[in-house]
Amino acid sequence: MIAIYVCAVIAVYAALRVIAERNTMRKLPFLNVISFAVTAIIALLLPNPITIIAAAAYFVGSTLESNAIASTWAGGIKKP
């Protein structure tokens, strides 16, 4: 039971770090910590075989989102 509490506390800590950081690109590693913690919470809440697909879909989707944000930011800076 302690495991899910650890994940919840780490998720809140990383969210506070995201709003404390001013630089846009340096926010993304903390966002990644949030998606790790939420994936762990999803898996720990409901032990069912389909939960693996849900956790993997959430993690890959969140990673793709960070990838798109970082790549668009880099492309937008380089052009002008």
């Binding site: 762990a40 898996a43 075989p49 939960t51 956790a55 990673t63 960070s66």
Partner: peptide, 27 residues
């Protein structure tokens, strides 16, 4: 940056632990 922008060994470790937790070795 690579950990942020693509699922690498860290994501593999987490999802493998989730799979073993939910469905054993095949998971």
């Amino acid at each position: 940056g690579n950990i942020v922008s693509s699922p690498d060994a860290s994501a593999g470790t987490l999802l493998a632990a989730c799979g073993v937790y939910c469905a054993g070795l095949p998971g």
